[in-house]
Design a protein around this nucleic acid. Structure first.
Lengths: 402, 402
DNA sequence: ACTAATTTGTAAACGGCCATGACGAAATAG
DNA sequence: CTATTTCGTCATGGCCGTTTACAAATTAGT
């Protein structure tokens, strides 16, 4: 009876359910969950009017969701208007939880997020993973995982799935890391190396960062570019609330957009790619610094301290970003561009020249550029929330397991 | 009872129907129509297995569609396999038709397409519309329209809607031409100037060209860039079978992607935009030609005749295209890039340098670049088919009117 | 304080729709 | 000529949202 969830990469609300009565029921259950989850405590009547069903129908849907423990009744609303007050419904703080994990270059992190979207447990281990063998790293990750799951279970949660963000390219099976240069990993099936108790999804951390921005960002934008720079310079392209992956899963390679067609050669085969001007290495070199351990922290620190050569290097990088983003904005006409991940920390010195360049090249009002408020937490939260979304997208599937 | 179709711009299959039993029924009717339409004559049983319903359910759906005149029974299939042969079903060649129209710079065209996708009537008037007042042009269009509708009706068709392709920017209401520089039109509500007998949709001709490629192109690609150059250089971005419009409807402005950041100034405010190197004017200038009436034809003619300066100009334009498309391909990872519209005629001289540049800047196999087989017909066919799609997407809505 | 009006949630009857299972019809295979 | 397979249809049943009615709980008006 379970639908094929977790197939391929996580995407937006899955319209994969068949157009049969049971499929309809499941979609309506999902719509109730989403509505209550997104718009706070709501009465049955308001849910009904929002999703276009009758109160009676919503009543039965809600009954089923309450019996499954996915929704809970908070009791009568405070009556402000005329008429009988409704009974407030809220997404349950117990039951299934999404487990998110991140394998960063300099840390490991795991967290548990409940259906309400709140982080209920977390564990972090700092220390570089650059060049370490995958085995020990994943064993360490598994121990953090056990810790977080135990914490979550103490709070009445049970793990509904695990999503892992990695700094590299992931195969379409959503399990295999094709290559993660900064870790030195390649062709690694994480599913085979981790305890297989949970449905597993692996994805690029830039993608999870973009999804986090989509689900948790300010103003709930549905069309934007989320630019981050952990490995190279990547952008998550979100169109109409869906992450654009491309036919081969290579979409968002902003780092290899040509900025100066006859510029220096790039490893990708091209010339004058954005990465040659705004990549980590290029900026460090332009600033006259040696590549060390915490490169981004080093840059941010020097810039904050007033180091003019670092500031100039970042200004130039911002200008290059502006050129590349002009192309992207002309092509996609997004609502906004959001700087996330490591770029968020450098934003104060990147933004002015970036915005200036973008505005200079745009007729009319330029596309808004902002900084993600999620900062470096994005990918981890996005991963955990992606699991939560699968539950919200098909509550009936999880009710059977609970 | 009619659903709000024709709202806003035409898009992919509309998932706007409510999750109620009637909505389900309507979606299933649509799925039967699409399946039969796309995969030729099919028996009830094959339709059932394809869309995941039972034979009994499909039988009732088909009955309804036959009664409405949207489907017709061709009789028993030739039995090749064991078992009782099925009765072949096909989309009807009578009934509703989509009327497409194109207001080009040098011509007016109208055609009628039946539900099978075949052009059943057409009318064209050649002659420039550059700078003519909108009134007379639209009157002429209306007369062509009457001609085509009369022809179509003689064949048992009735017009289900009208879609007009214009060389310019169209407001989100899908009726108002914001500006069409080559026509000299601005802020023109076509809905108010044409007989309002039919549901009307107006859209950019580049968008309709892209949709035509999506619906009628070879290999039914779902992720591609359709590049055309009627007004400036525009690209229709198709992602997962849907046309990407952008938040303001400005998506696909490939012409203003920076190719040389410190190149010549452009009207858009930028510098070194693709249009400065591969735009019509730029190429004519580089080739040492005067802008005349049929500019593209002139270029193609000279190039075919062996004019080396024209060929060199087109080669250089192709290289500039290659640079801009490298950025686009890196960002979107499409299945292919298709050259359509006027570019199709110039493709022989553009393609080699374009492909070379794209390949040179790509690690691994470069994105495929092909030429649309629809050529200059694309926008007109796309317009007509967009109406057909709205019928296929909700057959129940039209059955009431028939 | 009392009545009228309004809104909420529930229950029962209803109708629509797809699934199930059985059956006759029409072909092939042996 | 019989067994088998497949197709289309019919009757039955179960699921699900709607409709209608009603009790409960609040506000507005007198």
């Amino acid at each position: 009876m379970t639908a094929p969830l977790h197939e391929g990469h996580p995407t937006g609300p899955g319209r994969a359910l068949p157009d049969t009565q049971q499929g309809m029921r499941r979609r309506n259950l999902a719509r109730v969950m989403h509505t209550v989850g997104a718009e706070g405590p709501l009465s049955r009547a308001s849910v009904a009017s929002r999703i276009g069903l009758t109160r009676a129908a919503v009543s039965t849907l809600v009954d089923e969701l309450i019996r499954s423990g996915l929704l809970e009744e908070l009791g009568p609303e405070r009556p402000g208007r005329v008429g009988r007050p409704g009974s407030a419904l809220a997404v349950s703080g117990r039951g299934p939880a999404g487990i998110g994990a991140e394998v960063g270059v300099d840390h490991l992190a795991v967290c548990a997020v409940d259906l309400r979207g709140e982080v209920r447990a977390r564990a972090v281990r700092h220390g570089t993973n650059r060049g370490r063998a995958p085995g020990p790293v994943l064993e360490e990750l598994a121990s953090l995982l056990r810790l977080v799951v135990a914490d979550a279970e103490r709070e009445g949660l049970w793990p509904a799935g695990l999503a892992i963000a990695v700094p590299g390219l992931v195969a379409p099976d959503a399990r295999t890391v094709v290559r993660a240069p900064n870790l030195g990993w390649h062709d690694l099936d994480l599913g085979a190396l981790l305890p297989a108790e949970l449905p597993l999804t692996v994805d690029n951390e830039a993608n999870f960062g973009g999804l986090a921005e989509l689900w948790l960002g300010e103003g709930t934008p549905r069309d934007f570019l989320h630019v981050s720079a952990e490995i190279g310079i990547g952008a998550a392209v979100v169109v109409d609330g869906r992450l654009l992956r491309g036919t081969r899963g290579f979409a968002g390679e902003l780092g290899h957009v040509p900025v100066q067609p006859d510029g220096p050669e790039c490893a990708c085969g091209g010339r004058g790619c954005l990465e040659q001007y705004a990549g980590e290495e290029a900026v460090l070199r332009a600033a006259g610094l040696e590549p060390g351990e915490d490169r981004v922290g080093l840059l941010a620190g020097r810039a904050a301290a007033g180091d003019e050569s670092v500031r100039q290097a970042l200004r130039d990088a911002g200008t290059a970003f502006g050129v590349a983003l002009t192309g992207a904005v002309n092509l996609l006409d997004p609502e906004s561009v959001v700087l996330g991940g490591a770029l968020a920390a450098l934003a104060p010195w990147l933004l002015p020249s970036l915005r200036e360049e973008l505005a200079r090249r745009t007729a009319g009002p330029a596309c808004a550029v902002s900084v993600s408020r999620l900062g470096p937490e994005g990918p981890l939260l996005g991963a955990a929330h992606s699991v939560v979304r699968t539950v919200l997208d098909d509550p009936a599937a999880v009710a059977e397991r609970g």
